[in-house]
């Protein structure tokens, strides 16, 4: 009885330490913590269907949802430093992709009209941006950190989600992956 108990106890203890070690290593590898702006990489969303956003953009024009090969939906804010960091990448990316039937949509969170307009002018963003001041859409998409991007294929499926500032190469790869997904059933 005593032997049995001590064997079980030592197994539990060893298992406990192994779990701790594994998760400590895991944590060092991927910065999966929400709120940290260095968060990068892709993560799966449970809510994976594109919900169209019927609102007018910041200049009062209606957003069109014609058939696109891919939609890049970006949640950002003018006050968020990593968003500033990636603004030029996005402005350039839009120019590269607009002729290839890829739509960019920006959703500005908890922001005011003037700072958004200044931001758009400063970084030369040409795509549709609209405001989400009560976080309705952000919550609908399960947004955890800013900026957070969703890559949506032409069947309305969210193919990828990207947290944190993006660079050109990753942006290109993710859009291409999204378009590739269009052919899949």
């Amino acid at each position: 009885m005593k032997l049995f108990l001590s064997i079980i106890l030592s197994f539990i203890t060893i298992g406990f330490f192994i779990i701790l070690i594994i998760s400590t290593i895991d944590r060092e590898g991927s910065q999966g913590r929400p709120g940290l702006n260095e968060v990068s990489g892709t993560a799966e969303v449970k809510f994976e269907v594109f919900n169209k956003i019927y609102e007018n953009n910041i200049y009062g024009n209606e957003i069109s949802y014609d058939e696109y090969d891919a939609i890049v939906l970006d949640f950002w804010a003018s006050w968020c430093p990593p968003c500033i960091q990636e603004a030029e990448t996005l402005a350039e990316g839009y120019k590269d992709w607009k002729d290839k039937n890829v739509k960019f949509i920006g959703v500005a969170l908890w922001d005011n009209e003037n700072s958004i307009k200044n931001f758009i002018e400063k970084y030369g963003l040409q795509y549709d941006v609209f405001m989400d001041n009560d976080g309705k859409y952000a919550i609908e998409y399960g947004v955890k950190a800013l900026p957070e991007k969703f890559f949506i294929n032409n069947k309305g499926k969210i193919v990828n989600k990207y947290i944190g500032p993006i660079n050109e190469v990753e942006l290109k790869n993710l859009i291409e992956e999204t378009i590739k997904n269009n052919e899949l059933p």
Binding site: R33, P34, I139, V143, A145
Partner: peptide, 23 residues
């Protein structure tokens, strides 16, 4: 609260927590 470390939306004052409370 999705952007706070270990707080519920009831405890947090982050914008997203307030919006979630409204929802």
């Amino acid at each position: 609260c999705p952007v706070c470390d270990g707080q519920t939306i009831g405890e947090s004052q982050a914008s997203i927590a307030n919006d979630m409370k409204n929802i």
